[in-house]
Amino acid sequence: MTDSEKPIADDEWRTIVANVPLVSVDLVIEHDGGVLLGKRENEPVKGEWFVPGGTVFKNESRTEAVHRVAEAELGEPVVIDGCIGTYEHFYETAATGGVDSKHYLATAYSSHLDRNDPELNGDDQHGAFQVFRPPFDEFHPYIKRYLNDY
């Protein structure tokens, strides 16, 4: 395990989340004529259909983070098609104990799965994955913004 892959101690992570924006990547994955979303199992946005994503590690490029997150959350590799843009996300809730909000600087990447017949299973962040097609009116405003810009 490299230094960038070592977990941060809980008390240090709380301090980080409470005081600075988190640099992250989000994956807008085109699949089977729609966009692949996961049902969130934890905060923020627990219970919402949302794109896979995660924090960028120190000394890791954003595109490296996209590939790591895809493998970790989907169990499948992705091909990056382009960068949609960078967005600020503000959440009133956080999964981090003792912290009441989160602030992300999230770069969204358009991508597609490396193979047509993926075996997608839920993980600790997503209970299920599903492909959605327009219109996207019922989704979280951050997802609607990604899809409008996509």
Rank of each mutant, 00 (worst) to 15 (best):
G98T: 07
L22T: 01
L120E: 07
F57G: 05
G53T: 13
G75S: 06
N148M: 07
R115A: 15
A95N: 11
K39G: 06
F50C: 01
G85D: 01
D26I: 08
K6L: 15
G127Q: 15
L147N: 02
S110H: 04
Y104T: 07
G47T: 14
E43M: 04
D114A: 15
V99I: 01
G38H: 05
T2Y: 15
Y146T: 00
S111Q: 08
V51M: 08
E73S: 08
P44Q: 08
L37A: 07
S111F: 14
V28F: 00
P77T: 08
Y146C: 14
F50R: 08
R14Q: 14
N116I: 06
I80T: 15
G97D: 15
D117V: 09
R145Y: 10
V17E: 08
S24N: 05
P21L: 14
N19M: 06
D26M: 11
L27P: 06
M1F: 03
T93A: 04
A65C: 14
D114Q: 13
V99W: 07
I84S: 03
V78C: 06
A128F: 05
S111T: 09
V35K: 14
I84E: 01
T107F: 09
V23D: 06
H126E: 04
E12K: 13
D11E: 14
Y109D: 06
V78L: 07
A106Y: 07
E60A: 03
K144M: 10
G82W: 04
Y150G: 15
Q130N: 09
D123E: 13
D100V: 04
D117T: 07
G82P: 03
R133A: 14
E88I: 12
E48G: 01
R40Q: 03
T96D: 09
H67Q: 09
V20L: 11
G38L: 09
I16V: 14
T96V: 15
F50P: 01
T93F: 07
N121Y: 04
L22R: 02
F136A: 03
E64H: 06
E30R: 07
E71L: 12
T63A: 07
A65F: 11
G122H: 04
G85Q: 00
L147F: 00
A95C: 09
I8G: 09
S61C: 07
R68S: 10
R145N: 12
V131E: 03
S24M: 06
D114F: 10
E92C: 10
E64W: 07
A128I: 14
